[in-house]
Computed example of a mutant assay.
Amino acid sequence: MSIQRFFQGDSGFVVSLSEKARKIGGIDLAGSYLSDGPYQPSAELFRELDDDSIRTLIPPYGLPELREQIAMYLRSNYERTYDPSEEITITHGQTQALFACLLAFLGEDDEVIIFEPAAEYYLPIIQLCRANPVYVTLKEPDFHIDWDELTLAVNANTRMILINTPHSPTGMVMSELDMLRLQRLINGTRIIVVSDETYKDLVYDTAMHQSIAMFPKLADCGIVISSLNIGMGLMVQSGFCAAPAEMMKKIRKVLHFSDGGHFVPLQKAMTHMVPDRSRIGGLAAYYRKKKEYFVNAITERTRLTALNSLAGCFVLLDYSQVSTARDTDFANMLLEQYGIAVAPYSAFFHDKQKRNLIRINFARPNDELEKAVDILGCL
Rank of each mutant, 00 (worst) to 15 (best):
L357D: 10
A343T: 05
R130T: 10
H209E: 11
Q40H: 00
F257D: 15
P64I: 01
G62P: 08
V322A: 09
Q96T: 07
D329P: 00
E44I: 00
D374W: 02
A297F: 01
G12P: 02
L180G: 04
I340H: 04
P365M: 06
L74P: 08
A242K: 06
E300A: 07
A219V: 11
L102V: 04
D329L: 03
E65R: 02
R277K: 11
S323R: 02
L182F: 11
D205T: 05
Y33L: 03
A97F: 12
I90S: 01
L29E: 04
M248T: 08
N187M: 02
V274S: 04
L152F: 07
L310S: 15
G26F: 01
A311G: 10
L316Y: 07
H272N: 12
R303T: 07
D259T: 14
A243P: 14
E48I: 13
F294P: 13
N164G: 05
A43I: 09
A343Y: 07
Y345D: 11
G261Y: 04
Q353N: 13
H209C: 06
A119R: 14
V254C: 07
Y199T: 06
S278R: 10
T165F: 09
G261F: 05
S168L: 09
E370F: 01
R55A: 15
G239P: 14
S323T: 05
L335E: 08
V254F: 09
V14Q: 03
A306T: 05
G339T: 03
A213I: 08
D259W: 14
S42N: 12
R277W: 10
I223R: 08
Q40T: 10
I3Y: 11
T170G: 09
I24D: 00
A245Y: 05
P64S: 02
V322S: 12
K371H: 12
A153R: 08
A343S: 15
D276E: 13
I191C: 13
P344H: 12
I161W: 00
F6D: 10
R190N: 15
S346Y: 11
I223D: 12
A71Q: 08
T189K: 13
L103F: 15
A343N: 06
K354N: 14
E108G: 08
I125A: 06
L202P: 06
Q353H: 07
E368M: 10
M160Q: 08
R190V: 01
C241N: 11
L369M: 08
P84G: 04
A118R: 01
E86K: 08
I191A: 07
G12R: 00
E68V: 13
G26W: 00
L17Y: 03
L29C: 02
T324E: 10
D51F: 09
L307F: 11
V15S: 06
N332L: 11
L152T: 05
R184Y: 00
I212H: 12
N361H: 07
I251A: 02
I375F: 03
A97E: 13
D83L: 04
A285V: 04
A297R: 07
G188F: 12
G12E: 01
L307S: 07
D196N: 15
S32T: 09
S227D: 02
V112A: 06
Q40V: 06
S53I: 03
P124R: 03
I113H: 08
A243W: 13
Q8F: 08
T324C: 02
G222S: 08
K371F: 06
L266C: 03
Y82K: 01
N308I: 15
I90D: 05
A104S: 12
D259P: 05
V173F: 14
T89L: 14
